[in-house]
């Protein structure tokens, strides 16, 4: 995984709450077996509308998404994170994220930063007034900086450390192979097995 320290780019004010993962990427795009190339599915239903904010000229090339609360609810599909990343988003800012979406983002190096809803509202106004505004998201300092404003955000220490170091979970876990062996040796015999298939 790539390291994430600081990102600067332009941002999209998405004035919607409860953006569920079916909106982020509809199920028809989930038939693919690859891990890349999902940018066409991002917000596919909304993007069919030429007026949708992401279609507007002034928001082309954005890399930071500023969304309403409860972003990423619903289905566990990691394709939602892949679609955002493949489109070019590096960061999502919201007052509240769904747990599974947040976990998935952390695995794929997409930063989900929690800001206060008041700060999100202010950011929406700033970005609507000036779509060219450069927004800096500083993971080390846990800060979002734009046009002289500084907003602090929340991200847990462990996720921050993993993102800053660009570490992947499986190799971290495999360092504890012995602990897993020991645990397995103690598991009760009545726990079910899928193999062999019972008659």
């Amino acid at each position: 995984m790539e390291k994430f320290t600081t990102h600067t780019g332009r941002a999209l004010p998405l004035r919607r709450s409860n953006v569920d993962t079916d909106q982020i990427i509809p199920a028809v795009y989930l038939k693919r077996i690859t891990r890349t190339g999902f940018e066409d599915g991002l917000f596919a239903a909304w993007r069919a509308d030429p007026e949708f904010i992401l279609n507007q000229e002034q928001y082309q090339g954005v890399s930071i998404l500023v969304a309403g609360p409860d972003f990423g609810t619903g289905s566990s599909r990691e394709h939602a994170v892949w679609a955002l990343k493949d489109y070019g988003f590096k960061v999502v800012l919201s007052a509240r994220f769904a747990d599974i979406f947040r976990g998935n983002s952390a695995k794929d190096g997409l930063l989900t930063a929690v800001l206060k809803q008041d700060d999100i509202e202010l950011l929406w106004k700033l970005l609507e007034n000036n779509p060219e505004a450069e927004v800096t998201v500083d993971l080390e300092a846990r800060e979002v900086r734009v046009e002289g404003h500084v907003f602090t955000f929340e991200v847990d220490d462990y996720t921050r450390w993993r993102l800053l170091e660009g570490l992947d979970d499986i190799s971290l876990t495999l360092r504890h192979g012995e602990a897993i062996d020991e645990f397995e040796a103690e598991r009760p015999g009545y726990k079910p097995k899928t193999l062999p298939a019972a008659a």
């Binding site: 566990s76 599974i100 462990y158 979970d169 876990t173 495999l174």
Partner: peptide, 20 residues
């Protein structure tokens, strides 16, 4: 509980998950 694809890979490889 539901998990994402990266976690599916993690469970396949280690039969564990790091969780708070």
């Amino acid at each position: 509980f539901g998990i994402g694809t990266s976690e599916v890979e993690h469970v396949l490889a280690t039969q564990t998950l790091p969780l708070k």
